[in-house]
């Protein structure tokens, strides 16, 4: 009886995905008259290649370290050292990812062949780590709130779901107006609330707040979706259990701890997996609101996969990213599954 479902998934998801895996080992382009060639792991090493180098501060004629006004040593530009220099052939084409000063005498620089992808990777993980638990918790809170027997509760139930009903593309457009740095709604409200003390901030234009702004919006947008899933889980808990708890004189906290939460086990697993997957797939908000900027602060894995596969016509590179994403999420799911396994 699983056959129709599995058969359709096999043809329309698994088969094309194997196709994508195969593409990741080739130089296939979206548009090209050139024949496709097998290039082994080249796509993977282009994405994941990293290198480390150390540079010395600049010294004046007497060998003293040149320092700037603040007393910090001045370092030469990395490009002047490695660009076009055969001694650094192994680092050619790499860019600085991050660096730190080991001592006053040297700076260690970690380079990546594809800094943008590395940033996308870090941003996506950050997004998942923050958004998944916050969203799951808020959604559960809302579901509990909405699961009471109150007159007119179905009105609220509908309202909380509203942001999900409106397409994410639309919601993202709207939030661009809200976050606007000049006279956006958020700035105007904060300014009014603080009696003009708050002078406004370019939320999406500042690399330090752009990702946070997108997180807040994403949580707000999808929390109703997960509320509905929690709700359907809550509904499976038999009312007789609650009645029994009430008779026993259990407090609200105790009822939640001993009746509600155990009854939500399967739902919790579902929610956790669904939220994690959705967070990893972060794309539309980025596409509409920031295009990955400012300065790559909102690059994500799927955005990069699409940007390369379609925008830069590098379909094999895009496929490679999706294979890496698949492996990454699979690993995380296995860990999750292990941690939340049924203890018997």
């Amino acid at each position: 009886m699983a056959l129709p479902g599995f058969g359709l998934i096999a043809i329309f998801i698994i088969l094309p995905f194997f196709f994508a895996i195969a593409l990741s080992f080739t130089n296939q382009r979206l548009i090209s008259p050139n024949p496709t060639q097998f290039i082994g792991m080249a796509n993977y090493s282009r994405l994941l290649g990293v290198g480390v180098t150390t540079i010395q501060p600049e010294r004046d004629d007497e060998g003293e370290i040149i320092r700037n006004a603040a007393g910090a040593p001045e370092y030469p530009r990395l490009r002047t050292i490695i660009r076009g220099n055969p001694d650094f052939a192994n680092l050619a084409g790499m860019r600085e990812w991050f660096s730190w000063e080991r001592s006053d005498e040297a700076r260690t620089i970690v380079l990546a062949r594809d800094v943008v992808f590395m940033k996308a990777l870090v941003n996506t993980l950050l997004f998942v780590i923050i958004v998944a638990p916050v969203q799951a918790t808020l959604a559960l809170g809302l579901a509990l709130l909405i699961n009471q027997r109150l007159r007119g509760i179905s009105f609220y139930r509908a309202v909380y779901f509203m942001p999900v009903v409106v397409s994410i593309v639309v919601v993202s457009l709207l939030w661009r107006f809200i976050y606007d740095g000049n006279n956006g709604l958020l700035n105007n409200m904060l300014s009014a609330l603080t009696f003009g003390w708050f002078e406004g901030h370019d939320w999406l234009g500042d690399p330090s707040t752009a990702l946070g702004a997108i997180m807040v919006m994403s949580i707000w947008q999808a929390v109703g979706f997960h509320m509905v899933i929690w709700l359907s889980g809550l509904q499976t808990i038999s009312p007789t259990l609650y009645e029994a708890a009430a008779i026993e004189g259990a407090s609200k906290a105790q009822t939640f701890r001993y009746v509600t939460w155990p009854g939500l086990r399967n739902t919790a697993v579902l929610i956790l997996i669904v939220i994690t997957m959705q967070a990893f797939a972060l794309f539309a908000q980025i596409d509409v609101m920031t295009n990955g900027g400012p300065r790559d602060s909102t690059q994500t894995i799927v955005f990069q996969a699409v940007e390369r596969g379609y925008g830069r016509q590098d379909i094999s590179g895009g496929s490679t990213i999706s294979v890496l994403l698949f492996l990454l999420v699979l690993t995380i799911s296995l860990i999750q599954g292990f941690l939340t396994r049924e203890k018997t």
Binding site: F17, F19, G318
Partner: peptide, 27 residues
């Protein structure tokens, strides 16, 4: 094999549609 099959099905959740769109089009 039902456990394995289910695991495979759940794993397909991870595949973003954008990344299989072109092969799917050819199919």
């Amino acid at each position: 094999g039902r456990k394995l099959l289910l695991a495979i099905i759940v794993a397909t959740l991870i595949v973003p549609f954008e990344t299989i769109a072109i092969p799917l089009l050819l199919i």
